[in-house]
Amino acid sequence: MTETHATIPPGAPVFPPGRYGRRREPGRRRPVLLVLVVAVLLALLGLMATKLYSQYGDPTYNAEVITYTEVTDAQIVIQFRVRVPAGGSATCLLRARSHDGAEVGHEEVTVTARPGEQQVTTEHRLATTARPFIGEVLRCRPAA
């Protein structure tokens, strides 16, 4: 006849007492350690994202077209404003497009702010191969 224990649920393994050491209670975990590891990981990811954005983000070189005038079959004059770091300079890519959307002219222009100023307003005469419909500033980046 086999020995049955009233305190052991059916299907649970039966180990001889004292042979395998003390068994851990099920469900007992360390949630504080897990929360701490997750918090440190999130802080490191936030610091890395901030560093990469400050290094590769381009929030300071914003350009806007004020107006474009003197539209002829061979040119357009684009007046634009660029926000740069104080006293800095930027290289901007200007583009002219015809009425059907084809590019009829483009050129890179370097602009420099006066010492202490953060905005440069300038105009540039852009030569075109056909009559332009619109003048644009595609992008500005730090001057090389």
Rank of each mutant, 00 (worst) to 15 (best):
A86E: 14
E136Q: 15
Q75M: 09
G87D: 07
L94C: 01
R97N: 08
R29Y: 09
D73Y: 00
I66M: 12
R24T: 15
R139Y: 11
A39H: 01
C140A: 05
E123G: 07
G135Y: 04
P10Q: 06
R23M: 14
G87V: 02
S54C: 04
L36M: 09
H99L: 15
G27D: 03
Q118D: 05
N62Y: 01
R83A: 10
L34Y: 12
V84I: 05
R95A: 10
P17R: 07
L41T: 11
P115I: 03
I8T: 06
L52M: 09
L36G: 12
I134E: 11
L36H: 02
R30S: 15
A39P: 03
T67C: 00
F80D: 00
H106S: 15
K51Y: 12
L93V: 11
P85M: 01
E123P: 00
E64H: 12
G87S: 07
E108R: 14
F80H: 05
T69K: 09
P26T: 04
Y61F: 13
R81P: 02
G105L: 04
R28W: 06
P17D: 11
G87F: 05
P10L: 06
P115A: 12
A144R: 13
G11D: 13
T122A: 11
G135I: 02
F133H: 15
T60V: 12
L34F: 15
V32G: 13
Y20A: 13
G21P: 02
A127F: 03
D73A: 15
V84E: 01
R81H: 05
P13T: 03
V77W: 04
P13K: 00
M1G: 14
T122D: 07
R24D: 10
Q118F: 02
R131T: 10
G87C: 04
K51G: 12
T121S: 09
V120Y: 02
F15C: 08
E25Q: 10
R30N: 15
P17W: 07
P16F: 05
A49H: 10
T72Q: 01
E25C: 06
T128F: 10
P132Q: 00
A143H: 11
V71C: 00
R131E: 02
D58S: 13
P132V: 05
T112H: 09
G101V: 00
R141Y: 08
N62P: 00
V120M: 00
T129H: 04
A90C: 07
P26L: 08
R24C: 13
R30G: 08
E117H: 14
R125N: 00
P59R: 11
Y20M: 10
P17I: 09
A39N: 07
F80K: 04
H5V: 05
A96S: 02
R81K: 11
A86Q: 12
M1W: 06
V40Y: 01
F133T: 08
V65F: 08
R83L: 04
T69Y: 06
V137Y: 01
I76R: 01
S89T: 08
E64G: 14
I76W: 03
T91G: 00
G88C: 05
Y56D: 05
L93Y: 13
D100R: 08
R19H: 13
G87E: 03
P85W: 04
A102Y: 05
